[in-house]
Write a protein that binds this DNA or RNA. Structure first.
Lengths: 332, 332
DNA sequence: TTGAAAGCGCTAACAT
DNA sequence: ATGTTAGCGCTTTCAA
């Protein structure tokens, strides 16, 4: 910068003004400086600027994993929005490791990110109070369990997602429901589904709830096989807490000699890309991830602009049923 | 830091030595300083350190997209390796936008990342010479087309992947091959498959190559329907340049009244998670993404340690056939 | 083993 | 409209 200033016959300050696009610079001076800049191939050092201004044009995003397409879509959307605003994304994954989550949290804050976004309700849960202490804009998203009242959170109405899945099956005429869910992570979704049946006076027993230890097709397959073998009455409808699980459910149903949807209806949640290409195409409840990403990013950007922590709030985005071919009325 | 120093009755320098774990500090002094640090809740400012040392403990990773599971797995692996070494990941996606790629490139370098990893052969291609100019360790990975000799690149032997798929089908006894590929991106894979047949004296015509404009099941479905309708002879084997495409191929084959693998064998590339849960489970060629991520990261970390750009090199990782149920000998 | 001084490259505030 | 001064928080000399 000093070199540029010397070459242009001005001071560093004027160079700074030109670089930052300030209007105070006279056209001739600007031209001289710009010539010097291109001649010297100067690019500003963002770290130095960060130290001087206290702002790094960087936001941190802590997510459980990006191997799960749900999160990778959210990350991709956030990254795109940020780059439009000239911000960069510092990505940190926790992968179910609480200690790692905490490490990321502290290093990100001392790295002076301008804001912090945290997705997923994992072991970081217990460190939530820390978030308020950093004095920087923070927001939570994709927060399924117990969203804290002390922080701004943009999440999805997961209970409603379960409810919509349940109501869809109820409206088709199903009088009972078998649940295959990744518990306890997805218990909210399950209670939503149960509520839909309860509205019509049908109380579902916990005996018809089966746990898929992970949100994967294999896990869903296993749990469903167990359900099919243990239940006296053959289920007419299965609600899976996730599309990935639902895919496994459909496999299990078929390998048990039953047809989807003629014998058993299957409904999932999330609308992953494979859902529409499954056999049959999977009825599911789409989660508004992109909207969530947009709202959360907007919240943070606003917090940065106003130069203060974002006020606590809870935004629950509404999911939507996508009726496809895996659900039908129960056999007569 | 000054506060900590004052409270401990030492200078900033001593605090710095304690924080960085230098051995020159006497135990008593260290204890005093550490007490002051915890009392004050001091955490070092990484930006200031970055300005002073010229090293940010951050590496930039430019990828086409993370919506594609291939890249998201690579990113996740890289991020994990980096966090183990105390590095952070600045993630930048280009999403097929050359201008955006260039923006990322310049801002990342002026952000003084300690190293830069670039995945995927996109519009950034023309800006490759720039990479050498930054004077920081750079590596390329997942570089399918024309890996430059001037830079270190850790990639996969995509030609061999195609070859292995082709050879597998040849060994099953297939005498012709229909190709459904995302062209021109995957042309290397196609020529590999053709080479496998050529080895046995079978020259495959370009007429049996169909383009799926995107690496998606829908796209593969469309292209296959076209293939099935336009070909005089019914194909006995289809090679898809991607598992995602292969999924669509299988759909199309079935909806054309044919069975997989009895009437038509289908082979893909990549071994995406869905491949093993497809109906039938998809025979594919697994690409060693994790290995690639590890090697590339190691290369960069070494470059950082040696404080100089990484020497140009080309590492081609070997893919591996995974025989599952979608491939079988042709009908008699 | 500890302290003092200088500077990393930039910007903010003020002076001209 | 431009120049001057001071300082962001840390590390790196070098001196004690």
């Amino acid at each position: 910068m000093a070199d540029v200033a010397k070459r242009a016959g001005v001071t560093k300050q004027t160079v700074s003004n030109v670089v930052r696009g300030r209007t105070v610079v006279s056209p001739e001076t600007r031209a001289k400086v710009e010539a010097a800049i291109t001649a010297l191939g100067y690019t500003p050092n963002l770290v130095a600027r960060g130290l001087a201004t206290g702002t790094t044009m960087t936001i941190g995003f802590i997510v459980p994993t990006i191997a799960n397409p749900f999160y990778s879509e959210v990350v991709e959307e956030v990254e795109t929005l940020l780059e439009e605003q000239g911000y960069h994304l510092l990505l940190a994954t926790t992968r179910g490791d609480g200690a790692r989550a905490l490490r990321h949290l502290t290093t990100l804050s001392s790295r002076s990110v301008d804001a912090l976004l945290v997705a997923g309700d994992f072991d970081l849960n217990q460190h939530l109070p820390l978030l308020g202490d950093y004095g920087l804009p923070v927001a939570l998203c994709a927060w399924e369990i117990d969203p804290p009242a002390t922080l701004p959170v943009v999440t999805i109405d997961y209970e409603k997602a379960g409810y919509l899945a349940g109501r869809h099956l109820r409206e088709l005429g199903h009088r009972s429901l078998t649940v295959v869910a990744d518990l306890p992570a997805h218990r909210i979704r399950v209670s939503g589904a149960h509520r839909a049946f309860a509205e019509d006076g049908i109380t579902l027993s916990q005996d018809s709830v089966f746990t898929a230890p992970a949100a994967t097709p294999e896990s869903g397959y296993e749990a469903t096989m167990q359900a099919l073998n243990s239940t006296a009455e053959r289920p007419t409808a299965v609600f899976a807490s996730t599309d990935a699980i639902a895919l496994g459910v459909m496999d299990a149903v078929r390998s048990h000699g039953l047809r989807v949807p003629e014998d058993v209806s299957v409904v999932g949640i999330d609308d992953i890309p494979q859902a529409s290409h499954a056999h049959p195409p999977l009825t599911t409840v789409a989660l508004p991830k992109r909207q969530m990403a947009q709202d959360a990013t907007a919240l943070l950007l606003r917090g940065i602009a106003e130069n203060q922590p974002v006020a606590p709030s809870l935004s629950l985005l509404a999911p939507e049923v996508l009726v496809r071919a895996s659900s039908a009325p129960p056999a007569a």
